[in-house]
Design a protein around this nucleic acid. Structure first.
Lengths: 200, 200
DNA sequence: AGATTTCTGTGTCGATCGACACAGAAATGA
DNA sequence: TCATTTCTGTGTCGATCGACACAGAAATCT
C-alpha cells in the first residue's frame, strides 16, 4: 500500500518535541500560534492538519512530557527498594529537569496552565487530572511500601501522597523562581525527614 | 481646598477589591479588560485614569492581597510563641482562604502569573519577588526562633525557609485542584513533622 | 454666573489571537 | 502519462486583546 500523496515535509516527533518546549516555557496561553509555528518551523495549516488544533497539540505535548521527561522519575519511584527511597528518587529526578539550564525551568504540567489562568476550561481540567495521576502514583507506591513492611501500616497514605505531591508542585514553582539544583536538593532532604517510620 | 472637578462615580477601594478577585480567579492574562471593567462596573477610561494601566492595577491588587488576605497569616507567624508554631499558624491561616468556597481557590500570588505564563515579563518578575519575600519572612522568623532557643542553632535556616515556602506554594496548587480544607490541614501537619528539634 | 477642572460613556484604534480557505506542489497508483 | 491523494505557503477571516481620543456631564473656584 505505502503512503499516498505528498509526504510530510517535517518530522512529526521533532515538531511535537519543539511544541512541548514552547508550551513548557510560555504556558498554554502564552504559547501563541505564531510562536509555536515559528519555533516548529511549519505553517499553521500544517499544524492543524497534523495535530487537529492548538489544544490537541498541547495534549500530545503533555503526553510526550510524561513519557519522556517524566518517565525516568517514575521508573525511579517503582524500582527503588523502599517507598520513601522511591519517592526521594522521583523528586530528585524531577528537580534535575526542573533546574536544567538547557530547558525551561519548572514543571510543564504544574506551570503550563495554572488552572484559571488558561482561558480554556478543558485544558485546565486536563492538567489537573494529570497532577492527580501523580498523586495516585505516590499512593500506590506507598501501599506497596506497607505491604513490603518499609512503611508503617498506621500511616495515612492518602495524606502522605498528597504531601509529596504538594512538595513536588512547590518545587516546580521554586525552580521557576530561579532556585538551583542544590537548593532544591536540600529542600527534598528536609521534606523527607517527615516520613513516618516504624520506630515513631 | 477640597476636590476640584467632577467627583469619581465609583469607590476606588471597592473597585480595586473586585479587580483583585478577578486577577485571583483568572490570572493576569486571563483577566481581560472586558472582564475587569464588567466586574468592576466601570468603563476602561475610568480604569486607566484611576490605576494607570492593567499592569498598574494588577500591582495594586497584589499589594491589597498582601495587606488584607495575607495579613492575618503574617501576624500569626509573628505572634506565635515559637517559630514552628508560627509557621504552622501561617500555613493554616493561608489554607483557610485557599479553600474558601466564597473566594477563588489557591493563592493569587502563586497562581495569577505562573511565571512564563504571563506575557508581561515585568509582571512575572513582580510576583516572583513577592514570593521570595514570603521566604524571607520565614527565614527571619526562624532566626528569631534560634535566638529564642526553640529552633536548634545547627538547623539550616535557608533550606527550612525554602521548604516551608515550597509547601505553601504546593498547597496553593492543591487548593486549585480542588483539595478541601481538611485535606490541606492534614498535609500541613505531615509537613511540620520534619521540623528539626533540639533532641535530634 | 462663568471659568476651570475632573470624571464618564461611546466609539474605535492597531495589533494579535486562533483558525482555516484555497491553490499550488509533490508524492503514489493505475 | 495522468488522475488521485496529501501536504505546504500565502493570505485572510472574525473575534478579541489592551489602550486611548473625544466630547459631554458634573463638580469646585473666582
Amino acid at each position: 500500500m505505502g503512503q499516498r500523496g505528498r509526504p510530510r515535509g517535517f518530522d512529526r516527533d521533532t515538531a511535537l518535541r519543539t511544541a512541548m518546549e514552547v508550551f513548557w516555557k510560555y504556558g498554554y496561553d502564552g504559547a501563541s500560534m505564531t510562536r509555536l509555528t515559528t519555533e516548529m518551523g511549519i505553517a499553521s495549516p500544517s499544524l492543524y492538519a497534523c495535530f487537529g488544533s492548538k489544544e490537541g497539540l498541547f495534549r500530545e505535548a503533555v503526553e510526550l512530557y510524561g513519557s519522556t521527561v517524566g518517565a525516568p522519575a517514575q521508573r525511579a519511584l517503582e524500582e527503588a527498594p523502599t517507598a520513601y527511597e522511591g519517592i526521594r528518587a522521583l523528586l530528585r529526578a524531577n528537580i534535575v529537569t526542573f533546574a536544567d539550564p538547557e530547558r525551561p525551568p519548572g514543571c510543564m504540567v504544574v506551570l503550563a496552565a495554572a488552572a484559571g489562568s488558561a482561558r480554556n476550561e478543558e485544558v485546565s481540567a486536563f492538567v489537573t487530572e494529570r497532577r492527580q495521576a501523580v498523586r495516585e502514583l505516590f499512593r500506590q507506591r506507598l501501599e506497596r511500601g506497607v505491604a513490603a513492611g518499609d512503611v508503617p501500616a498506621t500511616a495515612d497514605l492518602g495524606t502522605l501522597a498528597a504531601l509529596y505531591t504538594t512538595v513536588l508542585h512547590g518545587l516546580a514553582v521554586q525552580a521557576r523562581d530561579g532556585a538551583t539544583t542544590e537548593e532544591l536538593q536540600a529542600i527534598i532532604e528536609s521534606a523527607m525527614l517527615s516520613a513516618p517510620r516504624a520506630d515513631r
